[in-house]
Design a protein around this nucleic acid. Sequence first.
DNA 1: CTGTATCCGGGAAGATACTG
DNA 2: CAGTATCTTCCCGGATACAG
Lengths: 141, 141
Amino acid sequence: MFPEASLADRQNISYMGQINPPKKSVTYSRKMDIKADCPMEVSLHVLTGKWKPAILSALFRGPQRPRDFAAGLPDASKRVLTRQLNELEAHGLIAKTVFDVLPPKVEFYLTPLGLSMKPLMEELNNWGLHFEKFNREILPK
Amino acid sequence: MFPEASLADRQNISYMGQINPPKKSVTYSRKMDIKADCPMEVSLHVLTGKWKPAILSALFRGPQRPRDFAAGLPDASKRVLTRQLNELEAHGLIAKTVFDVLPPKVEFYLTPLGLSMKPLMEELNNWGLHFEKFNREILPK
DNA sequence: CTGTATCCGGGAAGATACTG
DNA sequence: CAGTATCTTCCCGGATACAG
């Protein structure tokens, strides 16, 4: 059941046990609305966004205000930061406290769902390190 | 060292222990050339591509020919499939055997580096399932 | 069967200015 | 300080036609 277990035989790609290929609803950067029917795609979807990994990593150290992100991510434009925060919030990974003061004060923090990403983020980090180490060994010089 | 450990204090976002924010080299969909200095970004980079998770999942079941992918992923255009296979190959996750026959025959398979992605892919799958289950419970009806 | 060359549409990210 | 509104740029993904 290995060498010639051609894909053609099953009509569908099986993702780690799940049977469901990405459909048209999945755009090139996975910006569909969580309708992806494959768990792997779902995970990648919520992480898709240039600054999302950075935002989440920061929140794992504690609540952060918008200006904190802006200061820590000087290359990110305010508009994009705001949008990605909104997306993460819409996906349920983060939430915010809006203080009724002036000037405005907002604080973002991880929800239980966001906190549940820790193992996955560690695995992403682990494999990234493995990849870099692997390349250093294979492509010496 | 939690609530007010503002990002502004460190100038840089720390990714799970690594200190290095994504720089300009990281385009909106992480298509820089693996120069990302953050391991998490590296992992997400090699997985970025609409059909890459599907391609890798299929290869975990054994070698596959281009036409197998085409048959299993009817919504993917041949051009994109070819390009993503090339990218995966360039990143060292997969390799191919080119048979010198006519009509041409090519077979792709996972390299050791590609095989090493299994834990990460399982974690992606796990979290995706968790997310879906979580949403079913929180947003009943 | 496999892979390449063009051309196009759409959406993310960025820049800037403005509001409360 | 936080968020919004425009406008621009870039490039992935898709369609089609063609070559070996």
